[in-house]
Amino acid sequence: MGAAIRSELTKLTSTRMWWVLALAMFGYLAFIGAVMAFSLTVAAGDSTAAVAPVEGEAAATTVYGLVNAVGYAFPLLAGSLLVTGEFRHRTIAQTLLVEPRRTVVLLAKLVVSVPLGLVYGLAGTVGIVATAAPVLAWQGDGAHLGSGDVWRVLGLTVVATVLWTVIGTGFGAVLTQQVAAIVVILVFTQFVEPIARVALGAIDGLGRVAVFLPGAAADGLIGSSFFGQLGDGELLPRWAAALVMLAYAAGFALVGRLTTLRRDLG
């Protein structure tokens, strides 16, 4: 198992994808952080709209929590690439030649996705804090970087990002076609889930279903939701949310093991 993990780590770090994607995530969330911090402070101050303004520490946690709400496509993609890259470049045969125990190969990839997710979690949170904190401190009620609650949100955001990466790896094992996996992840995270959360939340009785969607579970884990601020306040308790995310990861990995990794490969 140790050898398989070392093998996966070398594969991961010997191409540029992991840090290019991390850099993109940093840049994207720095941009989002600036835009959202402005819209919650400068723009909100100008508006006479009836929407209750988000203020104080809630403004800080709402903006910082966006790493999860808008950034989770990055760790999902990065995780899926750990598996789909092997199929795209046909290195999967060599991988299975040196380690024919396919469960070990999959587990090694899941293990490696944890430190990889940590990198994305840090890239995202550092990115958003780097731009949002100065704006909130300047125009809003402060950056609240001294607050334990804010640090808990930041820490849990990193944890959620790690879980997203593990889920992505499991998903890659289910859908090994790289382009298809990327398209499905982007469509799901950018369209399907946001719409489903709002739609299900609007229907009586189905709001309880929406909280089990992966993005909603991640919000539950962090305890702060951008969607929550839009009126859909219902979230799973933290422990249940973490379990739901782990269940997604385990479920995908299991399906991948029983389908993809059962086939003739290479």
Partner: peptide, 11 residues
Amino acid sequence: DHLRSFAAPCG
């Protein structure tokens, strides 16, 4: 790096 990627399981 390709060789190093598969070295560990070969011991």
